[in-house]
Computed example of a mutant assay.
Amino acid sequence: METLVFQDLDFNQTLVEDHLYFEQHVDGFGIAVAVLYLVVCVLGLAGNLLVIVVILKLDKMSSSTTVYIFNLSLADGLFMIGLPFIASQNFQNHWMFGDTACKAVMVLDGINQFTSVFCLTVMSVDRCMALLEPFRLARWRTPRCAKIISLFLWFFSLLTILPMALHFSADGGLCIPDSISDSWWLGVLSYTFVLGFALPYTVMLASYTAMLITMRSGRLTAMNQESARLEQQMTKMVVAVVVMFGACWLPFYTFNFYSLYHGGLALTLARAFELVVLLSYSWSCANPILYACLSDSFRRHFRSLLCPVAKSSPSMQCNTERSDLTESGRDVTTQA
């Protein structure tokens, strides 16, 4: 799916018919939202690109967790590419890129949105396996196995989204489905909500609960102190990403279902919906920030990568960071 783009565009069509708001009003709020879209896009692209480079250059996908993080960041980064197109249509109430670009953006955004959610789900299960049965399930948590699973997730996302994405066209001046009815709209909403949010999030919460019970039971005391600390740190990072996912996407789905039963939308609600759409995109932008804040390994990796381009005093601090990175090069592998 691309839940966001699919539902957002359909909802914009409703706004056009009911209010002609976006067509007639380009005020300070619209400009501010457009700027926020741009900021999220730039930060999302830069942050996820940094994560990808760090994993490829410094970690080299040495664990199952970093393989999933790599694919999550790749999907999130590619997801940002569609944001300027969506922001342009929202701002101008007109699709100016042609019918082919409409279908391409829908397919691209759909694949990346689904893959992002699926990767986060599998990563939560992977973390749960690492804490519950670290030795018995180790053969399912190798980088090779994680890469095969990731390839399957990309392919499954394509199969999931393709039937809906190809129904989009820009013939009417907006990139929307060829035909819209209440039953079709309800079907799309239900399909995307269940497959792109409800089921994955249920699995994430179940994994989170199992991890929390394991961490509180003291089972990590069997590990040495440093390994236990790294396991807890990586697990908390994944849990934070899961919580952020729910906080960013649940309001979006709530607004969309609400729109089914309220044909006439107040200006305040229309503006609030724009912010909710922005919030859902912000999740992909927030993940690299969470990695940097909650993982010592990623933080050291980021510093090691960015340090050489710093203008100030090249020497001691950079060398120290590289030394720390070398000494703890096993961190990300151990964590996963």
Rank of each mutant, 00 (worst) to 15 (best):
S207Y: 09
G218D: 14
K147S: 06
A222M: 03
N224D: 15
V194C: 07
D171T: 13
I180Y: 08
S190Q: 10
D171E: 15
L212W: 09
D178F: 01
F155A: 15
D171P: 01
T202W: 01
I148Q: 12
Y201T: 00
I176P: 08
A165F: 04
C175V: 05
G218Y: 03
A206V: 12
G173T: 00
G173C: 06
P143H: 14
T202I: 01
M204Y: 14
S179E: 13
T202D: 04
W185M: 06
L212I: 10
I180C: 01
R229E: 13
L212C: 05
L162N: 14
Y208C: 05
P177Y: 06
D178C: 06
F152T: 11
W154R: 11
I213V: 14
L159R: 05
V203G: 11
Q232D: 03
L189H: 02
S207A: 14
G187H: 10
T209G: 13
G218W: 04
I176S: 03
D171Q: 13
S183M: 02
H167C: 09
K147W: 03
I213T: 15
A146G: 02
E231P: 01
A170H: 02
T214H: 07
D178G: 07
P143G: 06
R219P: 00
N224G: 13
L174R: 12
S190E: 10
T160K: 04
L205N: 09
L220G: 12
T160I: 02
W154L: 05
V188D: 06
Q232K: 12
M204G: 06
T221L: 02
L159P: 02
L162Q: 11
S227F: 05
W184I: 02
I213A: 07
T160P: 05
P143T: 11
L186C: 05
R219T: 04
D178R: 11
W154M: 05
R216D: 08
S227T: 02
F197G: 07
L220P: 11
S150R: 08
Y201P: 01
Q232E: 11
Q225V: 03
W184E: 03
Y191R: 07
W184S: 08
A228T: 06
